[in-house]
Amino acid sequence: MTIDWIHFTPWAALAGGALIGLAAALLWWLTGRIAGISGLVGGLLTAPSDWAFRLAFTLGLIAAPLLWRLFAPLPEIQLSASFAWMLAAGLVVGVGVKLGSGCTSGHGVCGLARLSPRSLAATLSFMATGFITVWLLRHGLGG
């Protein structure tokens, strides 16, 4: 293992993480809801009674980069994947988060923060296959 010190951004990571944690804490204390993005967004598909609540949260996420741009240019976004590859990745993510009842926010942040063994199990499983998948794509399969 070699650490990429040039691209390592500890302070931005901690600050951004703290903002994410603050958002999760505020949603909990203001509305009593877990800030699980896949659950809040995915729930929209079933036309639930709280659709406006879910839609507002979703639109807030989409609006964040637009608001950012009013004050500063967005940090670099590097995405080399093709449209077809992104379709495939999105489909696998959608199936996975629905089956597993959560993603990085619901299990990884909120679940771990409330010390849920179930969320820890989910987080360990997606971290493990995330590492394995990148290894296979970059090093394992003739990468």
């Binding site: 495939a88 493990a128 590492f131």
Partner: peptide, 11 residues
């Protein structure tokens, strides 16, 4: 579900 999500995340 978690495992599949990780695969998509890694893709």
């Amino acid at each position: 579900g978690g495992a599949l999500f990780g695969v998509g995340w890694g893709m």
